[in-house]
Each structure stands twice: as structure tokens, then as C-alpha cells.
Design a binder for these strands. Structure first.
Lengths: 346, 346
DNA sequence: CCGGCAGTGGGTAACGTTTTTCAAATGTGT
DNA sequence: ACACATTTGAAAAACGTTACCCACTGCCGG
């Protein structure tokens, strides 16, 4: 007869120990697959655990040892691209016996600090931060308290690992694709960045840089034309409006993110122009909706799943050996050509 | 000079107590705004906390008292509708001094059980479960261990609170809108449900029921036509294919969810038909992409934000008074008419 | 026969909080 | 001045787990 202890009704390690007639230490060892438990002991304890329905209390574990859970902070739940990352990470982590808890979409450094601190307070064994906007200083602070992996940001640090998309070549993929189709006036909508750290580290800045480099490489220097707004639907709308008002209207717009492209499409439609007939549009991220039939947006796939699984492996790695040197991965993106940049049959 | 204790480098309540020259009890009282701390004491302690940068350790707190964090389980990170719920909930909870941690998208009961158990193991003070598919039995089990609010499911229980959309009238909104436009052969694509509990409780089943009721109310009984697939893009694609193959093709399709509508639009385009000229399409959820210019999908708004904030208030309420009777809220949806059901100018 | 060693198992002290209990100090009414 | 309530603060006991250390059993080589 299972008799869970005291107030809470929760089955504790002590209950299991009594039921199996062994010490709590023994139970702990079995639960953690630690050294020093004979096969018979293991069998006895496992039986008791099953009979009583025991589950280790994560909060209590956090006080002494590991918690077997990993925190994932994501900047924006709405961007389905991040969902791919989560999927990839979750799969690897759950297979390794870790639980995943996510911090809610955060805008701005204050909110991010709040989320990261919460994860540390909950004794998470590691954290994966997706496209954080916090200062390097804060990231290093976090990395000092807990094994940390940064996803989708180019800065390198010796205190945390990172996984990022090669945004430079991703932008080149788009420019070359459009140039190959015969476009010369290829404009770009970027997310304006002022923080000097961000200009070097953030994907949006790198994409804008990649756009410029690729344009020059194709000898299209004089057609370089950038609208600086934000990576939002509205930013795309306003950016496209700016570009359409130019003396020399572009024939193609490379939006820095799919959501930006959606805003651009709206502005283009309002201006009475057709896509891709009058103007071609490309995005970035291969978001779920880019593939929808009415949208069919040309875009760049960042292999989010793979980014997530790589990040997960890195964090597990670092939990195992906290002192190993930091490693920084860069993943190659691929172009997904769809209707918004198609050549129309005549 | 802040001298954080021992191994971990973390500033503990003991450090604060020493620095402020009071007992740890006093610090604890101040941190929790508990009774029995004089104003001078509060000032002294707060000063020490600020100087040392102390943060309560959530895991340790979980062992005795509250953890000041709430777990939110969401079924699918990809559905942006859930993001609205999260936003609404997060806002209320953070204002109340609670932190939010989310369980990753879960498919199926096993995965859901895993997430809910993890939240309990982490000593969360409450949980909000969004559109769970678990059995009633499991939900009640969770509710027995921790204050629980179920969002988007119609079942009522005395052990947990709930917030749901009035899917019955939502479906009626769509049917009436289409009927008012002159449509008679209005078909529906539903998510097939077999579990008897689900047929009563799940939104998809209630929407299908609402469709039938509304059709009858408009004396369109003979035109009731349902394709049973799933609430996915592919389900919408297949469902629309089935409906288009009917002897009497429908002139309007009410998809049970926006994502289903997207699949339907693809099938319709493939069949060489135009929207809304040949066939009208409506969805449900007012997902972000429903508003995109190339999509412009008529849909039903569930006031996700409000659902989230209501759920948050309910869970806070129940934390405060665990024994109060369960309350069950139902929120009225609104129709958002867009181009996919527009009457074309002739 | 003794010392060392590998393999098992357990006792006990943390870990950082909150809750409970208790004592001292302070006020309050006769 | 005395009994009595109220406020203020602290010491100590949880909470559930793991890390650290020690004890015991055989076994082996010397």
C-alpha cells in the first residue's frame, strides 16, 4: 500500500527507500544511474519506484545537483521560424532525458534579462538563447552562471557556444538568384540597427551587409538601394512604399525577413503593381506561410531544425565538460525559389 | 564589499542578512512582503538586497513555499493564435509578480503528461493548459496537484477553472455571413474526432456542431456537407479536394481553422477555380497570416488576448483561494470579413 | 597473516528558502 | 505598578535531493 508522506501527498525518495528497504542514498544512485548500485539493488529500487509512482522533485534537485531541464528563450513566439529551432532542440534534449521549458517572447533587454534570470533561479542545467538582443556583457554574465548556447547571432565569445546561419551567403543567394533572372535594380529592406555590437552580430545587419557585398560582386554597385525600417510587417509596408517612390523604381525587392516581405506585398498591391510581373519579391526564413498557395514567396531556408538540434548538442556537451573551449557553428542556408520571383510565361 | 557565499558564487538570503545585520527570517519577510517587518527593517533589508544584487532562488523556494512562476502549456507553437493567448496571460501574470515558463508544443497525451509533470516537479504555483488533448482524468489529476486553468476546451469540472471561445456561435457567425451573401451550398471541413470526451469538449467538434445547427436554423438542412479530415494545412487540402469532387460542388467552404483554409485555397487554385468568384472560403482563429494582403481570409476572431488574460486572472485567483468553486468563462467571438468571401464588383 | 583495493551500501551534512515557534520588547488599560 | 495583548525579531525545523565520506565485505599479492 503506497503511503505517500506528510502534507503534500507527493511520493518522495524516502518513501521509495522505505518501501524498497534500502537507504535514500541507494535510491538516489539508481535514479541517477550513478556508480555503486548492484543489479539486484537496481531491480529492487526500480520496482519500488514503479509501484509508488515516484518522480524526482526537480526543485529539490536543483538545490544540490542537476535539474535535468534546459531553458530555451525565444524572442518572438509569432515567428514560426523559431518553432523549427525549438523542434530540433527539443527532440535531441528529450532523447537525452532532459526537459525543455521556454521563456516567453521577449522584446528588449529588460525582458530578456528577466527571462534568463528566471531560468537561472530555477536551476536549469543549461540555456539556449535564440536571437537575443541583450548586450554581450549580459550574455557573458549568463554564461558565467550556466552553460549557454546562443543561436542566430554572429558574435563569438569564449564563454558561450553559438550556432548561426551564414546570413552573408544567404543574402548572396537571393541577390544572385534575382540577378540571374535579369534584375539589376534590386533593392533591400533592412532592420535599422544602431547599437555597434548589434551591427556586427545581429543577423539582420549581416544580411544587409551580405546584400551590399553580393551586389558589388555582380557589378551592381550603382543599384544598391536600401530602405531602413524594422523586421515587422509594418516595416515591410513602409519600406516598400519608400522604395516604390524612388525615381528609379526597383524591379526586385529583397526583404530581410518573410514577415517583412508580407508587408511589402501589401504596399505593392496597393500601388496597383503585380508580383512578379511588375516587381519581384523575396524574403528570408522560409516561414510556414511563405509556402501557402496564395503567398508562394521566394525565400531562404535557414534549416531551423538543424540549428536547434546543433544547439542542443552543444549545450549537452558543455554540461558534460564545462571547461572545454567554446565552439561556434555556422550553417549554410539554401534558396527556395517560388512564384514571387518567377519569370512569367509570355 | 559583497562577498557571495561558498561554491556557487550566488548571493543568498544569508549574505543579505549578514550584510544588513538582521536575521534571514527578516529578509524573507521583506522579500515576500509578509507581515511582521517594521518600516526601518524593510528599508535596511531592501538596501542590502540592492547592494548585493540578491535574487531569491526559485528552486529553493519551491521546496517550502511559492515559486512565483506559472507554467503555460501550449499545444503547438506554430499556431500564432496561441501567441495571443500567451501575450494576454503573460501581461497579467508579470504585473502580478509572477514569471511565466512554457512547455513546448506537445502532440498527444504522452507528451502532454510529460510537460504537466515537469511543471509540477518544478513546483510551479499554477498551470494554464491551452487546448489540451489529455483525458479528463489526467486533467483532474493535474488539477489535484496544482491550481489549473484549461483554455479552449468546453468540458466543465469542479476541480479546475476554464476559459473557452463560444465556438457554437462562432460557427453560426460564419454560416450566417455566407448565407447572407446568398450562398446555400455551404460546406464545412472538420477535424475528425472519435474520442467521446473530445466530441463534447473539443472546439473543433463544437464548431462542426455549430455549423450543423446554424445551417438548420437557416433552413439549409439539405445542403449540410462535411469533409472530415484534420486541422492541418494538408487536411484542408484533402478536405477541399473531396468537396470539389461532389456532384453538387459547394459555393462556399467554411474551414474549421485558418490553417485548414490555407490548404483549401491551395486545392481550389489547383482545380483552376478562383476565390471568391467561383467559391468563397472562410477560416477560424483570425491568425496573423489571415490578414496578409495576398491571403485576406475571412475568419472568426476569438479574442486570444482576452482569453489569456482571463485565464491568468483565474489562476491567480485560485492560488489565493484554493477552495473557491470552479468558474467557467465563455467568450464571444467576432466575424472578420475579408476578401475570400467578398462579393465581386461586376 | 597483513595491507591494500575494488565493489557495495549507508549516514550525514549541505543546498537556499519558508514556516513555525518562541522570546523579548513595547504598548495599554486598570 | 501590574496583568495582558501586540509587535518585532530571531533561532530552529522543515522541504526533497545529492555529494561526500566512511564502513564493510571479499579477494589478491606479498
Amino acid at each position: 500500500m503506497p503511503k505517500p508522506s506528510a502534507r503534500t501527498g507527493r511520493v518522495t525518495i524516502v518513501d521509495v527507500a522505505q518501501h524498497a528497504e534500502v537507504s535514500t542514498t541507494a535510491v538516489s544512485k539508481v535514479v541517477r544511474n550513478a556508480y555503486g548500485a548492484s543489479p539486484e539493488m537496481q531491480a529492487k529500487v526500480r520496482k519500488a519506484i514503479a509501484e509508488l509512482g515516484y518522480r524526482p522533485h526537480a526543485a529539490a534537485r536543483g538545490l544540490r545537483g542537476q535539474t535535468y531541464s534546459i531553458g530555451v528563450m525565444l524572442p518572438n513566439i509569432r515567428n514560426p521560424f523559431f518553432a523549427d529551432i525549438i523542434d530540433g532542440a527539443t527532440e535531441v534534449l528529450e532523447d537525452a532525458g532532459y526537459q525543455v521549458l521556454m521563456g516567453p517572447g521577449c522584446n528588449g533587454e529588460a525582458e530578456e534579462a528577466r527571462v534568463t534570470e528566471t531560468m537561472i533561479d530555477h536551476s536549469m542545467d543549461g540555456v539556449i538563447l535564440i536571437a537575443p538582443v541583450s548586450s554581450r556583457q549580459h550574455l557573458e554574465h549568463v554564461a558565467r552562471s550556466v552553460p549557454t548556447v546562443i543561436v542566430g547571432r554572429h558574435g563569438r565569445s569564449s564563454s558561450y557556444d553559438s550556432v548561426a546561419d551564414d546570413d552573408l551567403s544567404g543574402a548572396a543567394l537571393v541577390v544572385n538568384h534575382l540577378a540571374d533572372l535579369g534584375h539589376r535594380r534590386i533593392a533591400h529592406i533592412e532592420h535599422l540597427e544602431t547599437d555597434p555590437d548589434h551591427i556586427v552580430e545581429m543577423p539582420n545587419a549581416v544580411r544587409a551587409d551580405g546584400y551590399r557585398q553580393a551586389m558589388r560582386a555582380r557589378r551592381l554597385d550603382e543599384h544598391i538601394d536600401v530602405a531602413s525600417t524594422t523586421y515587422t510587417q509594418e516595416g515591410g509596408y513602409l519600406g516598400a512604399q519608400q522604395l516604390l517612390a524612388r525615381l528609379h523604381q526597383p524591379t526586385a525587392i529583397f526583404a530581410g525577413a518573410d514577415i517583412v516581405a508580407m508587408g511589402a506585398l501589401e504596399a505593392i498591391a496597393e500601388a496597383g503593381l503585380t508580383v512578379p510581373g511588375d516587381i519581384a519579391v523575396a524574403g528570408y526564413d522560409n516561414t510556414m506561410f511563405a509556402g501557402f498557395a496564395p503567398v508562394s514567396l521566394t525565400t531562404v531556408d535557414q534549416r531551423g531544425r538543424q540549428m536547434g538540434s546543433t544547439a542542443a548538442r552543444l549545450v549537452l556537451d558543455r554540461i558534460a565538460q564545462p571547461r572545454r573551449p567554446a565552439s561556434h557553428m555556422k550553417l549554410a542556408p539554401t534558396l527556395i525559389a517560388r512564384r514571387t520571383t518567377a519569370v512569367l510565361p509570355h
